[in-house]
């Protein structure tokens, strides 16, 4: 994948949060501690594709989403949008970037201002970005409501008058109001009921088709990610351990963590029992990430080399890219 075809190109993105020192830390002059949430993420988003990002809670997938839209300042690494560096931006550049890269949030109850009607929310977005002249805005609001299949009288209502699924539609309409090229969906449907999830997922797929959107779909529900994504990245402790086309990755995952993760999702077929042994242990703390391959403590295939050196993402024939020292052996088994 060359830079010319990719709309968003991320290189070596790292992010860490400083832990507020306690009074003892200050007195004893302990060094500051950092939570390393992202450790060198490389990503390409091609125009019109959906990239799914999966991982367990605390793996850094939400932080990745927030870094990409600029909610967290860029600490380390590089983001290229349309081959232009967006790493160091002024306020105006940031606004322009965000007009083209929008985000939708997980919690349908906190992502909308409880005191603004839907009409006000959309009006604000349209007028701040001067997407339409003041006289055309009401017309555009109606279009947007139609687009996300909400009744037009929704414009006069406050968020609390809507159900969770409808609120996510409002959030989608808000994101679409500025006509972005990339949508970043952070656990967009996780908080919704199963039957409502399907409605919102269908809407998202339909909108992508119609508007040619590029989507980064962050979620922990593997079935959903598989369904909506062209390509999928599996994240473990802030690093991508495997990335590849959705079909091959789900059909034949290579990295031991991907295997464990994909197999752990309970099937709705009672006779399709998970045959692989479940992962032992739990996610290590991102405060001190294990040396070498971060997964070696829980990995059934770990050897000496895994404890010492961190594997790089490498392409493997017939598969995607895998960050594992034993990828080749595992592909054969």
């Amino acid at each position: 994948m060359t830079e010319n075809t990719s709309l968003l190109h991320v290189t070596n993105l790292s992010h860490q949060f400083k832990i507020d020192p306690s009074i003892f830390d200050v007195i004893l002059r302990r060094p500051s501690r950092y939570v390393k949430v992202l450790n060198g993420i490389d990503l390409n988003l091609a125009r019109g594709e959906t990239l799914g990002v999966v991982g367990e809670s605390g793996c850094g997938k939400s932080t990745l989403a927030r870094c990409l839209v600029g909610l967290y300042p860029l600490q380390n690494g590089e983001i290229l949008f349309n081959n232009q560096n967006v790493s160091h931006k002024t306020r105006a550049e940031q606004r322009d970037y965000n007009r083209r890269v929008q985000m939708m949030f997980q919690d349908p109850y906190s992502s909308l201002n409880p005191r603004m009607t839907v009409g006000q929310v959309l009006h604000e977005a349209l007028s701040v970005h001067k997407m339409r002249s003041e006289t055309e805005i009401p017309e555009r609001i109606n279009e947007l409501l139609d687009l996300v299949s909400l009744p037009r009288d929704a414009a006069d209502k406050l968020p609390h008058q809507f159900s969770g699924g409808q609120r996510q539609r409002i959030a989608i309409a808000r994101a679409l109001s500025v006509e972005p090229e990339i949508l970043i969906a952070d656990e967009l449907v996780s908080a919704l009921d199963v039957s409502v999830q399907a409605q919102v997922v269908n809407l998202l797929l339909d909108l992508q088709e119609r508007l040619g959107l590029t989507i980064l779909f962050v979620a922990h529900d593997l079935r959903l990610v598989r369904h909506v994504s062209h390509r999928v990245a599996v994240i473990y402790l802030g690093s991508i351990v495997e990335i590849g086309s959705s079909d091959s990755l789900f059909a034949n995952p290579i990295h031991p963590y991907s295997r464990a993760l994909l197999n752990a999702a309970p099937s709705i077929d009672p006779d399709k029992k998970n045959t692989t042994a479940p992962l032992t242990g739990e996610l290590p703390s991102p405060l001190n990430i294990p040396s070498g391959c971060a997964f070696h403590g829980r990995c059934p295939h770990a050897t000496e080399i895994c404890k010492k050196s961190k594997p790089e993402l490498k392409a493997l024939d017939g598969h995607g890219e895998i960050a594992c020292h034993h990828a080749k052996e595992l592909a054969l088994s």
Partner: peptide
């Protein structure tokens, strides 16, 4: 039936999911 069919398992990727209209 609707609940079961809206689970995206063993359906063609990126096809329209079966979805129940409305909300509970």
């Amino acid at each position: 039936i609707g609940l079961l069919r809206s689970v995206p398992e063993d359906v063609a990727p990126r096809s329209e999911l079966y979805s129940l209209p409305g909300i509970p």
